[in-house]
Design a protein around this nucleic acid. Structure first.
Length: 616
RNA sequence: GGUUCCGUAGCUCAGCUGGAUAGAGCAGCUCACUUCUAAUGAGCAGGUCCCAGGUUCGAAUCCUGGCGGGAUCACCA
């Protein structure tokens, strides 16, 4: 309908100003916005861009166009001009047709664009459980994948799991030393938490060992290696890695384990597989609670070798160069970056090496056209470099890579730091929000007569809606502060507020059914009041919102849309009786309208990974 | 220091490729439930859009330069 309006507008410009025929007027060049509340009208056309070409005053231009469009368009009944803004009032025919359009279940569904897009998100390490940072990542990535799908892309949701390396070996070593054969089953602990616990234990044991060394043998090293004016604390902080690699008993043992792993030592590999298996079971549970799934998983243990091959080939073709010490680099100075290492002097791979291999493996497996990496903004530079290297390697998808970069999550008490134990655990968080939802729900008593199971499912939906919306409503680029109290807030700009709009409609629809009303598409005649028109205008913008969210890689666009629609509906609901309106025609219209609103709210929220309950 | 992101009400945030008098929510103060779910609605109050220039019919928005904050510039991932 918006398109038809634009066409009429274009036609009237051309009719009113024959000299303008030559002027190109793309649909996108015709700017029409919903009219601001202070003025009369539904849509506003800004004529300023035409002033120069038509060599006339804004007032005259707007007036002429207005007169013209009213004369022939069946959709425009009136107009007024305020300072070069042409405000158009639309006919009930327009609203009638628009209502049919937005009520269609297929409204907003885009045809396939025939493109495969991979969206990577979550991407955890196997040495600790998921935390709040992962949650922001997962919500963004998941939502982006849904938005791409809604825009007609064939989407592959993917994660890369960092399942190898020294950190993973630390948990393994620690388990060997301290566990006495304990398992998640025997201890009744979720697998990822179980393994994470041994990682923590390792760090504690290492710190203890390091402290003991500092007051013993370490003194000699201190005196020999410390810089002038450097105190012991500063020195030992700086020296930690060297100590780990050269002096630490458990450090050296862990490094040996890593070497054995790389040499495919059967015993080490068996332990590795067992412990990672525990972790994956734990992750699976968390993903399930969050309502996310993946189509494809890559493991770094399976891609890093391919990355090394790529580098070897790239040396031959002159993309990379080898230094005397054997390390391999790439010179990116002509692209405004610096020299970057891609292979260590001992031949082992770095982060970049693995990412090269992963990208190639993904292309080989899925033939993707484009790729979105959901990774925190601390890695902006890494991805800039990665994309440049892939371009130089001549990868066919290289100019369709996007780093969905997002700001880190802070706590009201400051940064999350694993060393200081301030990390907010994902599983705890989910449990907390469900509990908060339960508390407020119980207080309100809207779920009486339901089974405990049904109630719990609803608490979960509400709690998760609060948590997810709290995070996803914020523009990804921005660093965000996570306030646990605000995250379980259920009033105002929140997930539950939007759910409530939906639930209110469901409640009405249940009453409709009870009353024996038959729900059919509304085709009667009514007069569309201000709020009716505002709601319709808003719903009409849904497809545009989807496109915008995709273009900007920003789910928060969808989040604000849903909130605004819910907000307008709440007001509408307050001011208008749906079921017992002044007459049956108006009632059936309002039922139809409300049904459409519910439909769009549900679709929109689904893109954010938020489900709608029927009761709350 | 180089690069980059951010800076809007007491707090948390919107503000689309420049458009009319800068908007929400929270917190504060009022008011409205025997009524389709009050997890709601209505109202009051709250602003140097970080600062200074520039571009033009018009700048929170674009450009330049500052100021403040984050990130990054590893043979870590």
């Amino acid at each position: 309908m918006l398109l038809k309006l634009k066409q009429d507008l274009k036609k009237s410009v051309h009719n009113a100003f024959p000299t303008a025929r030559g002027i190109e007027m793309e649909d996108s060049a015709i700017i029409i916005n919903p009219t601001k509340k202070e003025f009369d009208g539904d849509y506003t056309f800004v004529v300023f861009p035409l002033v120069k070409a038509l060599r006339n005053s804004p007032q005259n231009i707007a007036d002429a166009i207005g007169k013209e469009i009213v004369s022939f368009s069946e959709y425009v009944v009136d107009y007024n001009v305020v300072q070069g803004f042409l405000n158009l009032s639309l006919s009930s025919k327009y609203w009638q047709e628009l209502l049919q359009e937005v009520a269609d279940e297929q409204f907003g569904v885009k045809p396939s664009v025939g493109q495969k897009m991979m969206v990577e998100f979550s991407s955890p390490n196997t040495n600790k459980p998921l935390h709040l940072g992962h949650i922001r990542n997962i919500l963004l990535g998941w939502s982006m994948s849904q938005i791409a799908e809604a825009n007609g892309f064939d989407v592959i949701k993917s994660q890369i799991i960092n399942d190898r390396g020294i950190a993973v070996c630390k948990s393994m070593m620690s388990w060997q030393m301290f566990a006495n054969g304990a398992t998640p089953q025997s201890e009744n602990i979720k697998g990822d938490h179980f393994v994470g616990g041994y990682y923590v234990k390792f760090e504690q044991a290492f710190q203890e060992e390091y402290r003991a060394w500092q007051v013993g043998d370490g003194q000699a090293v201190l005196n020999e290696h410390k810089k002038e004016n450097e105190d012991a604390d500063a020195f030992f902080k700086r020296y930690k890695n060297t100590y780990f690699n050269e002096y630490s008993v458990i450090g050296v043992k862990t490094k040996e384990m890593l070497l054995k792993w790389e040499a495919s030592d059967p015993e080490v590999k068996a332990l590795w597989e067992k412990m990672n298996g525990w972790v994956y079971e734990g992750f699976e549970e968390t993903y399930k609670a969050l309502g996310v799934t993946f189509d494809s998983i890559n493991y770094e243990s399976e891609t890093y070798l391919l990355g090394k091959e790529t580098v070897e080939k790239g040396i031959e073709s002159g993309i990379f160069y080898k230094k005397d010490d054997g390390s391999v680099w790439i010179d990116l100075e002509d692209a405004g970056m610096d020299h970057k290492i891609v292979l260590r002097s001992d031949g082992t791979s770095v982060y970049m090496t693995q990412d090269l291999g992963t990208a190639q493996m993904r292309y080989a497996e899925h033939g993707i056209d484009s790729m979105v990496y959901t990774v925190a903004d601390e890695q902006d530079y890494h991805f800039k470099v990665l994309f440049e290297i892939l371009k130089r390697l001549g990868e066919p998808y290289a100019d369709k890579l996007f780093h969905l970069s997002y700001g880190m999550v802070d706590l009201t008490t400051g940064k999350m730091k694993s060393r200081e134990g301030t990390v907010v655990d994902a599983d705890d968080l989910v449990a907390d929000v469900a509990q908060a939802a339960k508390d407020s729900s119980t207080e309100r008593g809207g779920l009486e007569g339901m089974s405990e199971e049904e109630k719990d499912a609803i608490y979960h939906k509400i709690g998760l809606a609060a948590l997810k919306y709290f995070i996803i409503k914020i523009n990804p680029r921005k660093r965000m502060t996570f306030d646990p109290n605000a995250s379980v807030d259920m009033q105002g700009t929140t997930g539950p507020y939007i759910q409530n709009a939906y639930v209110r409609i469901q409640s009405v629809l249940r009453k409709v059914k009870q009353a024996g009303f038959e729900q059919v598409p509304f085709e009667g005649q009514i007069s569309y009041e201000t709020l009716d028109r505002e709601l319709l205008v808003m719903m009409a913008s849904y497809p545009i919102v989807l496109e915008e969210a995709l273009e900007k890689y920003d789910p928060s666009v969808v989040a604000s849309f849903c909130y605004n629609l819910a907000k307008n509906f709440h007001r509408y609901y307050h001011d208008n009786v749906i079921l017992d309106a002044e007459n049956a025609v108006v009632s059936s219209y309002r039922i139809y309208l409300a049904t459409s609103i519910a439909q769009i709210l549900k679709k929109g929220m689904k893109l954010l990974g938020i489900e709608m309950p029927d009761y709350m």
